[in-house]
């Protein structure tokens, strides 16, 4: 038996994939989220936790470029020059969304084309980027259906004929097929039964690790955060009250609100 000696020059990526500075969004007098800043590196999975109305979904919508914040900046380093996602053209932002970014919605209906077959749903991003070989598109779609544990013979069925868990897995395949660098997930296991959740969580865990994805996951479920995320931001009333390594925040919470959150849950 030998002790593994780490290679001396296993340097971490020098630049963050996403740099978020001072994001604030107000709804009139009410705070959506206030002065949120963080950096996300390639391969990191960040969880945003908090109760309903804590501002986590508002923040996610701003980060993903769906909404524009009232203040703040988000820089994305996909390849080449960093992109300021609020000042790039809508065209460029839409292109990002179809290629380097992905969004997994809580409700699969928001992320899938319900009248298009499973294969067509997965293949769309490939066709978006200009793939024009039917056989290759179909092979890639089959491969992804297998990876998300949907039987190959369902490739021509429409999502309507799928269970909720299958729809969610199909949505994930549809997003990941273009090999995005950054994925946003909004309560990805939200509407599912507990047993179905477990399967989906495990699948996400494996995919995120195998693909080296960076991801930002909004959830109110601390068990989901524990299983999927490396880092955690705890939000309350639009403010980030605590952040750090996921196990630090959950096992040794410092802020009163985080202590309340973690103590309200049965062993996570």
């Amino acid at each position: 038996m030998t002790v593994h000696v780490p290679p001396p020059d296993a340097t971490l990526d020098p630049d963050p994939l996403l740099s978020v500075a001072g994001i604030s969004r107000f709804y009139g007098e009410r705070i959506g989220c206030a002065d949120v800043s963080f950096e996300l590196w390639p391969g990191e999975v960040l969880g945003i936790v908090g109760e309903s109305g804590s501002g986590k979904s508002t923040l996610l919508r701003c980060l993903a470029g769906i909404d524009k914040p009232d203040a703040g900046e988000v820089l994305f380093r996909g390849s080449g020059e960093p992109l300021d996602i609020y000042s790039v053209s809508e065209q460029e932002r839409r292109r990002l969304m179809r290629t380097a970014w992905g969004i997994v919605h809580q409700n699969p209906r928001d992320g899938l084309r319900m009248d298009v077959s499973a294969g067509g749903n997965v293949g769309e991003r490939l066709m978006d980027r200009g793939d024009r070989h039917y056989g290759k598109i179909r092979d890639t779609a089959l491969d992804w259906l297998t990876r998300v544990e949907i039987a190959e013979n369902r490739i021509d069925d429409r999502p309507r004929q799928f269970s909720g868990g299958m729809q969610q897995r199909l949505q994930i395949a549809r997003v990941l097929v273009s090999e995005p660098k950054l994925v946003f997930m909004d309560e990805p296991t939200g509407g599912l039964d507990v047993s179905v959740q477990a399967r989906l969580l495990d699948l996400l865990r494996v995919l995120v690790r195998d693909l080296g994805l960076a991801a930002i996951i909004v959830t109110h479920d601390l068990a989901v955060a524990r299983l999927l995320t490396d880092r955690l931001m705890v939000m309350k009333d639009g403010h980030v009250v605590e952040q750090g390594l996921t196990d630090q925040v959950l096992d040794d919470p410092h802020h009163a609100y985080t202590q309340l959150l973690t103590s309200a849950v049965l062993s996570v």
Binding site: P6, P7, P8, A10, G244, L245, Q248, D251, D252, H254
Partner: peptide
């Protein structure tokens, strides 16, 4: 292990030399 955060102090871990 870095799981609990000390109130003060330093812990130097020799990592990759």
């Amino acid at each position: 292990y870095g799981n609990y955060r000390p109130t003060s102090g330093e812990i130097r871990i020799t990592h990759a030399g």
